[in-house]
Nucleic acid binder design. Structure first.
Length: 581
RNA sequence: GGACCUGUGGUGCAGCUCGGAGUGCACGCCGCCCUGUCAAGGCGGAGGUCGCGGGUUCAAAUCCCGUCAGGUCCGCCA
C-alpha cells in the first residue's frame, strides 16, 4: 500500500481504495471515474468511483446526472456501512462515502468496450483504444508491476556500484546481425543513422573509457518479424563491467534478477543454477531449457548403432518418455509427427508401452535388444509412450526437445519460476553462403581458454565464454566475456573469414579504441519485457507494454507507420519506389 | 517468404458441416419505474453493408476464389 502523502493533491485527499474503517468519520474528497451508477428512484443513488487503486462506493441522496466513465470529484463523509450491506467482494466494502457532493470534472461518452475485467476484449479493439484499455485493472497491474521491476533492477545495480550511462539512439549502421531501423539524415541527405539493436559497441567503449561498471535500462530496436515474445522495441537491462570474469557477471546479474523477482513476487528465488550448453542440448534438446518439468531426452544411439531398421539408421537416436502418453489418439500422434517434420525431422517414431509390449507401426521391425531398450527408456511403464527421433545429433536433440516442450510445458502463469544459466555456448555455429564460419553470439566473444588451440583446427568444437539466462524456457538474455586482446581477436576474425580491411571498415572504431588500452571486460543484457511478462503470468509481452505494435508492425491507435509530408521527403531527398519494383 | 486460426449491432458469443427472409443469447446503450444496491432489479426501445471484392446458385453470414485486418507458429531475431 502506498503512503498516503503521495495520494493527496489539491483536488483529492487520498485514493479510493485506501479508504477503510480507520477513516470512519473523516470528511474526504476522492477523484476518479464512474465505474457504475445504480439509481433507486429519485431519492437514492450509488456511485462506484474508481481510480487506479480500486473502487469506493459513494451514496448520493437523490438522483445524480453522471454516466459510466464520467470523471468526478466526490466529497463526502467516510461512514461504516449499515448492518447487512457490507460487500466482501470489495476491498473497501465495509465503508462508503455518504452525504456526497459530486462534481463532474469531465463527461464521457460510453466506452467502446466495458472496462471491467469480466470479458476478454478482442486485442484489435483494445489496441485501438489503448488509453481506455490502460484504465482497466489488468493493465494497471501489469504496468505498475513493470515499474516495480525496473525500480528493483536500478537499485540492485546502483547498490553493486554500477553507473547508469545513457547511450545514443542515433547510431551508425553496422552491416551485421539483425535488421536495423534506418533514420535518414536531414543535414546530410543520403546518409543514415540506425536505431541500435543494442548498445553493444557503445558499452564496450565505455569500458575503454574507464566506466568499469556500467548499466542502463536501454531501449533497443530490431526490424525483425514480431511474435508473442518479440516487439520492434524492447527494453533490456544492459550491463558491462571491467576487470571481471564470467562468474563476476553472473553474480551481478543474479543479484539484479533475484531482487527484481523478490520485488515482483514477494518471494526470493533460490540461487540460480547453471548447466553447460552441451548439457542443455543433450538433456533438454534446447539451449533454453524449461526446468519446471522433467521429461529428459535419452540417448539410444548405441543401441541402434548397427540397426537394420532404416528409420533408425542415423548417427543419433534420441528418445523421450511421456508419462501416460499411451492414451494419445492416432490423430494426436499424427499431429505431433507433422510438427516434428515441420521442424526438419524425417519422422517421429512412437511406441505405446502396453501389457503386450510395444504398440507401434515400427515395433515389428525392431530386434529384441532394440525393443527392450525402448521399453525401458527413462523407467518407462505400461501406459507411457516413447518418442524417438533419429537424425544427426543436433537435429535429433532439437526436434525431440521441441516435442518435449509442446507436450510438457505448462502455461506461463503456472508452476515455479525456474531460472538457469546456460554457459559455454559454442563460439561458432554453421557456415554462411560463402562457406565462412558464423559467430554464434558476436565476433567479440572470448573463446573458452581450454579451446584456444581448436580455433584453427576444429572451430565448431570451440566453446566460448558466452552465457544465457533462461527462465521457464524463455531466453531472458545473453552475454559474454569480450575479447580485449588484439591477437585473439585476429584469430577469431580469421576463422570467421573477416579480412583485416573488412574488420577495419566494420568495427574500426571499436578496434581502434582497443589499441589505447582495453581492460578485460564482460557483460550481459536481458529483456525486461519477457521478465515482467512471466512475473505477470502473461503469454504475450504486449500485455506488459503500454503501446505495443501488432504483428504487422502497426500501431492501431496512432495508425503508424504512415507516410510523411512531401515537404519532409524533399528535404530528406527521399523518393519511394513504386510497389513491386 | 510460408503454414494455420479468427473476422456476425458498441462488446462477448451462437448460427456456418448440411445454402432458404439479419435469426438467437448475454453485456452495454437510450427511455420510464424503483429509498440499500454493489455483475442491482422491473418494463419498454434503438442499434447490422454478417471485414471487403468477385464467383457458383432461383437463393450466400453459410459453398468457392481473391483481398484486407488481427492472432499463433516456421523462416528470421550476430
Amino acid at each position: 500500500m502506498m503512503s498516503k502523502n503521495l495520494e493527496s493533491t489539491s483536488m483529492r485527499d487520498l485514493l479510493c481504495a485506501s479508504l477503510g474503517e480507520s477513516d470512519v468519520g473523516r470528511q474526504v474528497s476522492v477523484c476518479g471515474w464512474v465505474a457504475k451508477r445504480r439509481e433507486h428512484g429519485e431519492h437514492l443513488a450509488f456511485l462506484d468511483v474508481r481510480d487506479h487503486s480500486g473502487i469506493i462506493q459513494a451514496v448520493v441522496d437523490g438522483s445524480v446526472d453522471v454516466r459510466s466513465e464520467y470523471v468526478v470529484r466526490v466529497s463526502g463523509t467516510v461512514t461504516r456501512r449499515p448492518e447487512g450491506t457490507v460487500n466482501d467482494k470489495l476491498a473497501t466494502g465495509s465503508v462508503e462515502l455518504t452525504d456526497c457532493v459530486v462534481e463532474v470534472l469531465a463527461s464521457a461518452e460510453p466506452p467502446p468496450f466495458q472496462l471491467d475485467d469480466r470479458v476478454d476484449i478482442d486485442e484489435q479493439v483494445r489496441l485501438k483504444y489503448r488509453y481506455l484499455d490502460l484504465r482497466r485493472d489488468h493493465m494497471q497491474r501489469n504496468l505498475r508491476l513493470r515499474a516495480v521491476v525496473n525500480g528493483a533492477l536500478r537499485r540492485a545495480m546502483d547498490a553493486q556500484g554500477f553507473c547508469e550511462v545513457e547511450t545514443p539512439l542515433l547510431w551508425a549502421p553496422t552491416p551485421e546481425g539483425s535488421r536495423e531501423f534506418v533514420v535518414p539524415s536531414r543535414l546530410q541527405p543520403g546518409e543514415f543513422y540506425v536505431l541500435p539493436q543494442s548498445p553493444q559497441i557503445a558499452k564496450q567503449l565505455l569500458m575503454v573509457g574507464g566506466f568499469d561498471r556500467y548499466y542502463q535500462i536501454a531501449r533497443c530496436m530490431r526490424d525483425e518479424d514480431l511474435r508473442a515474445d518479440r516487439q520492434f522495441e524492447f527494453s533490456q537491462l544492459d550491463i558491462e563491467a571491467s576487470f571481471v570474469d564470467q562468474d563476476d557477471v553472473l553474480g551481478f546479474v543474479s543479484v539484479a534478477v533475484l531482487d527484481a523477482a523478490e520485488a515482483a513476487t514477494g518471494v526470493r528465488p533460490e540461487e540460480i543454477p547453471s548447466m553447460t550448453w552441451a548439457e542443455a542440448l543433450d538433456r533438454y534438446g534446447t539451449d533454453k531449457p524449461d526446468l519446471r518439468f522433467e521429461m529428459l531426452l535419452h540417448d539410444l544411439s548405441d543401441v541402434f548403432a548397427a540397426t537394420e531398421v532404416k528409420a533408425f539408421s542415423a548417427p543419433t537416436v534420441k528418445a523421450l518418455r511421456v508419462s501416460g502418453g499411451a492414451s494419445f489418439s492416432r490423430a494426436r500422434l499424427d499431429e505431433l509427427t507433422d510438427y516434428a517434420k515441420g521442424l526438419g525431422a524425417k519422422g517421429l517414431a512412437w511406441f505405446r508401452i502396453t501389457d503386450e509390449g510395444l504398440d507401434s507401426p515400427l515395433a515389428k521391425f525392431l530386434n529384441e535388444t532394440e525393443r527392450a531398450a525402448i521399453a525401458s527408456v527413462d523407467g518407462a511403464q505400461v501406459g507411457d509412450i516413447v518418442f524417438c527421433v533419429a537424425d544427426e545429433y543436433t537435429g535429433a536433440c532439437h526436434v525431440l526437445g521441441a516435442v518435449r516442450s509442446a507436450l510438457g510445458s505448462p502455461p506461463v502463469g503456472e508452476g515455479p519460476h525456474r531460472y538457469v544459466w546456460v554457459t559455454e555456448f559454442p563460439l561458432f555455429e554453421g557456415v554462411d553462403e560463402n562457406g565462412n564460419l558464423q559467430a554464434a553470439h558476436h565476433p567479440f566473444t572470448m573463446p573458452h581458454p581450454d579451446d584456444m588451440d581448436l580455433i584453427d583446427t576444429d572451430p565448431l568444437k570451440v566453446r566460448s565464454r558466452a552465457y544465457d539466462l533462461v527462465l521457464n524456457g524463455w531466453e531472458l538474455g545473453s552475454g559474454s566475456v569480450r575479447i580485449h586482446r588484439a591477437d585473439i581477436q585476429s584469430r577469431v576474425f580469421r576463422a570467421l573469414g573477416i579480412s583485416e580491411e573488412e574488420a577495419e571498415s566494420r568495427f574500426g572504431f571499436l578496434l581502434g579504441a582497443f589499441k589505447y588500452g582495453a581492460p578485460p571486460h564482460a557483460g550481459f543484457a536481458f529483456g525486461i519485457d519477457r521478465l515482467v511478462a512471466i512475473f505477470a503470468g502473461e503469454e504475450n509481452i504486449r500485455e506488459v507494454i503500454a503501446y505495443p505494435k501488432t504483428q504487422s508492425g502497426a500501431d492501431l491507435m496512432t495508425g503508424a507507420p504512415k507516410s510523411v509530408a512531401p515537404k519532409v521527403m524533399r528535404e530528406l531527398r527521399i523518393t519511394v519506389a513504386p510497389k513491386g519494383s
